[in-house]
């Protein structure tokens, strides 16, 4: 497989602003790694049901018992910007 990586699109999806140099370097590095995946990509593997837990354990659900955790102050302590008890960010447009 020789898929070329569309670094601009991938960076957009990952919310990373890359400068020209970074784009070039990363495109080169990633292409090299992706090339290394070719052998795996081409393997013929059975299509069994996948368990995301390495040991295949199944989910244990938690009881619906509410409790208080962070105080309002603790929740906002690390905020880069806040006002009137809310987190503040530049305008989000869509």
């Amino acid at each position: 497989m020789t898929d070329k990586i569309d670094i601009k699109n991938v960076a957009k999806l990952a919310a990373l602003k890359l400068n020209e140099d970074e784009q070039q370097q990363l495109e080169k590095d990633l292409s090299m790694i992706i090339e290394h995946f070719a052998a795996l990509s081409e393997m013929d593997l059975p299509d069994d049901k996948i368990s995301i837990h390495p040991l295949g354990m199944s989910l244990n659900l938690a009881e619906d018992i509410a409790s208080k955790s962070l105080t309002h102050e603790e929740a906002l302590r690390n905020a880069p910007d806040s006002k009137d008890g809310q987190f503040v960010v530049p305008p989000s447009l869509d």
């Binding site: 018992i65 509410a66 409790s67 208080k68 955790s69 962070l70 929740a75 906002l76 008890g85």
Partner: peptide
């Protein structure tokens, strides 16, 4: 209308006070 949130045990609150029912998970 559960007592606690989906993935943490913070109260499901009906309040106008912002950021009152939070824990590491839902934040």
């Amino acid at each position: 209308k559960t007592n606690s949130k989906m993935f943490c045990r913070c109260y499901v609150l009906d309040t106008d006070l912002p950021n009152e029912s939070l824990c590491p998970t839902c934040l």
